[in-house]
Amino acid sequence: MKEITTNKLPENKLSEHELSDLCLKTAYLLVNGGAETYRVEDTVERIGASLGSDVKCYVTVTAIFIEINHKSYKFIKARLGGTNLQMIDEINTMSRQLAVKTMTADGFKRHIDHLYKYKRTSDFPFTIKAIGAGFVSMAPMLLFEMPLYYFIYCFFVGIIGYTISYTLSKLSMLPYADLFIAGFIIALLGILLKRVGLITQYHTIIIGAIMPLVPGVAITNAIRELVMRHALSSMVKFLDSLLVASSIGFGIASALIIF
């Protein structure tokens, strides 16, 4: 069925229905990858222009609206969360190729369909991510000018905290609970290290170990969107990052209160 329709039409020309589907899927993937809303709108409108149609796109964090050639409208529900910078880069590169005509509309559609179906790109294995998290948690130790053995403890505590957050977020649908538990266990490990007598104070260990859990993508996007006057999605992301930060904080606080 798909083969017939694409054969009938001239090259680089999709039917209106196909084009709106393509735009919706692209916008959905970009939003889920963690792109800023104004960039999503810009990319989709540019894809429409390079395919020869007038596309208008409006993105809030939870919904994507699309209008094609002033007559057909569509919308799709999106969801907050998820970060995949590889996805943004891939779609960005493809839309660039589409604009300079080194990629056909057909090839672009096939790629997007593939990405949409599996919702994932090439990903790093978990062990490498965990080691990355360990390095992230080591940097704040430099700032407090700690002796060298603190770096090693912080490396491992950071890895444990990230592992817990990662596994729990895969298991459960409740969004902020995994961060609360991860914060709790990080603080617990810090206090434990002090009780055993390996370190003299646990504050720096905790500060370092929560660094991989920081909502970096949400904060950065919220600021960038606020400056570009996309206030609605900016506020949603800001509130989300605030909730993430405070759930980590309250996790730590409850560990400090109990022990």
Binding site: N84, Q86, D89, T121, G132, A133, M138, L142, P212, V217
Partner: peptide, 19 residues
């Protein structure tokens, strides 16, 4: 500092699956 600053940035790029 140079070493750890770079490693830490690359580490977070691994977490967010940067290209």
């Amino acid at each position: 500092n140079v070493l750890l600053g770079g490693l830490s940035a690359v580490g977070f790029s691994l977490i967010t699956n940067a290209p």
